[in-house]
């Protein structure tokens, strides 16, 4: 189910999963994504809320603890595999680009 639904990840999905390599809560992710992408990628609070719910439903992340209104999550094995697959896809794309334009340099 997770594999079909998230067969390709958008940038926002990709960075959200990347942030969850380490346990963190939703608000940390809202800060971390612009930080790690030099403000190139921003994620909306509503979008992140929906994404976290869907990632949990698809067992790509799991809830670790709740402190007041803050729930923390971490990446699961399934999530890691999907992230890995996306990384490979991006690498393959980059490789195709390099090969295609190598003669121009």
């Amino acid at each position: 189910m997770a594999r079909i639904k998230f067969s390709t990840l958008t940038e926002q999905m990709f960075y959200t999963l990347l942030c969850l390599k380490e346990e963190c809560c939703g608000m940390d992710i809202l800060d971390k994504i612009p930080e790690m992408t030099d403000n190139r990628v921003n994620i909306g609070s509503g979008t992140l809320y929906t994404l976290l719910e869907q990632f949990c439903e698809c067992d790509m992340i799991r809830e670790t603890k709740t402190e007041g209104r803050r729930r923390s999550y971490i990446l699961t094995k399934t999530g890691r595999e999907i992230l890995e697959k996306e990384y490979m896809r991006i690498c393959a794309q980059a490789e195709d680009y390099r090969r295609f334009f190598s003669g121009d340099k």
Partner: peptide, 24 residues
């Protein structure tokens, strides 16, 4: 349905992923 407001001129929108908004 939730309604929010902001005084900021260029805030990060609450919804940044169109497909997720349609689904939500």
């Amino acid at each position: 349905m939730f309604i929010f407001y902001t005084e900021l001129e260029n805030p990060t929108p609450i919804q940044t992923e169109p497909s997720l908004e349609v689904e939500a």
